[in-house]
Design a protein around this nucleic acid. Sequence first.
RNA 1: GCGCCCGUAGCUCAACGGAUAGAGCACUUGACUACGGAUCAAGAGGUUGCAAGUUCGAAUCUUGCCGGGCGCACCA
Length: 552
Amino acid sequence: MTADELSAALTDLISALVAEGRLTVDVVPEVKVERPKSREHGDYATSIALALAKQAGLPPREIATLLAERLVEVDGIASAEVAGPGFVNVKFDSATQGELARTVVTAGEKWGHGTALAGRVVNVEFISANPTGPLHLGHTRWAAVGDAIARVLAAAGATVSTEFYVNDRGMQMDKFGASVMAAANGRPVPADGYHGGYILDLAAAIVIARPDITSLPEAEQFIAFRETAYALQLKQQQQVLALFRTHFDVWASERALHESGAVARGLAKLMEQGHVYELEGAVWLRTTDFGDDKDRVLIKADGEFTYFASDTAYYVDKRARGFDLNIYLLGADHHGYVNRLRAVAACAGDDMDDNVEVLIGQLVKITRGGEEVKLSKRAGTIVTLDDLVEEVGVDAARYTLGRYPADSPLTLDLEEMTRATSENPVFYVQYAHARIASVLRNAAELGIDWRAADFDPSLLDHERENNLLGMIGEFPRIVASAAELREPHRVARYLEDLATAYHRFYDVCWVLPRGDEELAPIHVARLWLCASARQTIANGLGMLGVSTPERM
RNA sequence: GCGCCCGUAGCUCAACGGAUAGAGCACUUGACUACGGAUCAAGAGGUUGCAAGUUCGAAUCUUGCCGGGCGCACCA
């Protein structure tokens, strides 16, 4: 019995009661079933009676009683009680619940996966930084969360592609090239250029690789520096992200959009839809037709394409590549883009509620020993992704960033993060995994083949076993909601609760035979339970891109 | 001025409109002579920024204030 099955059973019950004339209900709302915070309230509880009371014209407790009476007759349900103002608290019988262990072990890596988003072809674009410097902590939040969102969407059945848009065109690239060139020639970096120490490193690396470069004519030299530095910097970003276990299926270049004719095609598509017009020598897109607060320029009066023109082309291009849902993950400083991007979709003839989705992540504030660290790429006071990984490791960094919802501002203290790694919740969860792995190893050493032994799920009737099974059973619903809401932190929070349930079980329920003790059915049953808990933790951590150690 | 986001324990943060608002860190106190103590058990800590409203029920939804962050380019 699972939560979904219980919900379905309740829906059927209500329909039956209506058919019998014992209940008058026009519309049966979705029956929500939840896991109560207090274990005294059973394995699951529903407030459906409260929701039905008004339209049924009956006191909620009366409806709850009707439901409870019928529920106890349903297979797998041990008890159903009315509580409080009209809640129905349900307990499953241990055999039915214990079966879950078998289900989980059988499903293996697929446990928790669902089909809610089956058929959706989703593009998840995130980070999309200029290739003019190293990735910093702001990008890192999306590296962790964006990647987790993609994984969670895939677990919900979607076909997902991750994408990084490289802004390799325009003024910033020129400033970047000029900065590196100046540094290589021993000249001061222009005031509006990039001043980080990495500029010097890039300059030095380029000069070593191409000693003749500084003797090239100025214009030629500038291009050479810009292009070489671009290639090096992009490669550096790619290497760091690979180290961070954030994989991108596509690295899309803004230049390539122009060179391949995608910009022209995008423009043609928008014109065809009739939202493009000319004014004062410039070409505009009438985004105000779809909720934007002002129209946007596509082609400037001087004939140059704007950055926004690339954006529109990029969107049209993604659609042409078959993505029916395009998710953009942007920093809070880009929230003004939300309406603009939605309007672009609408201007291209799409449904802006269905084909495009913009998620805004609040900025990460960094403190060091309680004092705020201002992040500025130009001033060079940045905390890079490399730094972070070096200081706290990939697992701790990913988990720490992944356990908070991205739409709330986050303050991280670097000292605390480094110092507190051993107390970081990620270790708590990983420790549970390692502990189980250890038990399973010991079982193997004792020659116990629990998979081949008879498994009697009804033996898992201890309160802690029951609680652990209940938590494990929640996993598919957690994954589904994390995908639906684009909130992978729900998986992290869930894993912490699951780890607690395991540790509590482990504390009082001995798993393996001790000493000369014979192997008994309870040992086998508990090994199945351990294996299912391990699988669940592994699948959950996998969605967050965190490793699952066998030993720590 | 207009717009978006956020105000929850000392700190960092959770909480499909549900029952007594929860974790971690920090603080008190217990538990290892057999599967990993990176654990478990117990305690303390709150007017969910303020005020109205919606309803069986509000941290959550609505409105108005107060406080903070971020945006409002023919820049990228």
